[in-house]
Amino acid sequence: MPGMTNTDFDFLAGSWDSRQRRLTKVLVGSDEWYEFDATLDCQVLLDGNGVFDVLRAPERDIEGLTLRLFSPDEKIWRIWWASRASGGRLDEPVVGRFTDGVGVFECDDTWEGTPIRVRYRWSFVDTPHPRWEQAFSTDGGRTWEVNWEATFTRRGR
């Protein structure tokens, strides 16, 4: 319905510093992580039904953007990621919603030729330090390997 306001991602509007943590090697049973700092600048648009952000981590040469679009009819979000490393190609969108303050978004994709299930999870969105994680599953979602985590702190307050 036109004019309907969505507030799911309002918490993310503005400028953030974040601590990022990534697995060194994905889907090989590794438990070796590396950490780095990043910034995130986010705009909430289209009455809350569109959210756009840019993530920058110069020390790791990472620059990427996220586009989130909410479908009021389906009551779901589609979230696309694109990075400099992907040559500006949008990844498959993860799809999902928030339930009880936790957002879970999933899709099927491939990682280095292996079919995977991808999951993004937003939690602690009502705190000063929202948290995001990415996980992959090679068994249809029965088990997950978290491979990227980020904790955010609002900048300029």
Rank of each mutant, 00 (worst) to 15 (best):
M1T: 09
D8R: 05
F9W: 13
A13I: 08
S15L: 13
W16I: 02
D17Q: 15
D17C: 10
R19D: 09
R22D: 07
L23W: 06
T24F: 11
T24C: 05
K25R: 15
S30T: 10
S30A: 10
D31L: 09
E32R: 12
E32P: 04
W33L: 05
F36E: 03
T39V: 07
D41F: 04
D47I: 01
N49V: 01
G50P: 14
G50I: 08
G50A: 15
V51W: 00
D53A: 03
D53C: 09
L55Y: 13
P58R: 11
I62K: 07
E63K: 12
L65A: 15
T66V: 12
R68W: 00
F70P: 00
S71G: 10
E74Y: 00
E74W: 01
W77N: 01
R78D: 06
W80N: 08
W81L: 05
W81A: 07
R84D: 09
A85D: 12
S86Y: 03
G87M: 11
G88L: 13
G88W: 13
R89Q: 14
R89S: 08
G96K: 00
R97E: 11
R97N: 10
D100W: 01
G101F: 11
G101L: 04
V102M: 01
G103T: 00
E106N: 00
T110Q: 11
E112H: 13
T114E: 02
I116M: 01
I116H: 03
I116A: 05
V118R: 11
V118Q: 05
R119M: 14
Y120M: 15
Y120V: 12
R121G: 01
S123P: 00
V125K: 04
P130F: 14
P130G: 03
W132T: 12
Q134F: 13
A135Q: 05
F136G: 01
T138W: 08
D139M: 06
D139A: 06
W144L: 08
E145D: 00
W148K: 01
W148E: 06
E149N: 07
F152N: 09
T153C: 03
G156S: 03
R157H: 15
R157P: 11
